[in-house]
């Protein structure tokens, strides 16, 4: 049977590099890692007195966990790690601009000052 441009390529006709496709395994392991981090995040709520994140430490712990999850999704699921560097520059330009502008805005309203309640 002739193959047309609209037909799928049968997996059997592809060579091993595609057939094995070990990236799927990486994706599943990444998802499990993200799920584990989410469980830790939820534990900060369920067990607020746990020494690692007691008191104001919880903010730092949650921010670190959030940053790890953010980087993992962006670099592995969004393929930024495997793609052209220009895409990394474009995305980080947006993130950095947003973070800079809004941190200044929050500082203008003295949100990080002690006793701030909006």
């Amino acid at each position: 049977m002739a193959i047309t441009s609209h037909d799928p390529i049968p997996t059997s006709q592809l060579d091993g590099a595609v057939k094995d496709y070990s990236r799927d395994k990486v994706y599943v392991l990444t998802a499990l890692f993200l799920a584990a981090l989410t469980v830790i995040e939820i534990m900060t709520y369920a067990f607020p007195d746990f020494p690692v994140w007691s008191g104001n430490l919880v903010i730092a712990v949650l921010m670190i966990l959030m940053a790890i999850k953010f980087f993992t999704v962006v670099y592995i699921f969004m393929h930024l790690r495997f793609d052209k560097p220009i895409l990394t520059w474009i995305f980080w330009a947006g993130v950095t601009l947003a973070a800079g502008v809004y941190l200044v805005a929050l500082c203008t309203f003295r949100i990080f000052w002690p006793g701030h309640h909006g």
């Binding site: 595609v18 990236r23 799927d24 994706y27």
Partner: peptide, 18 residues
């Protein structure tokens, strides 16, 4: 979060023609 996994598996599936 798990929908991100299924999405990336969809991309992977079309790349190998499945």
């Amino acid at each position: 979060l798990m929908s991100s996994l299924t999405m990336v598996l969809a991309v992977s599936a079309i790349e190998r023609g499945d």
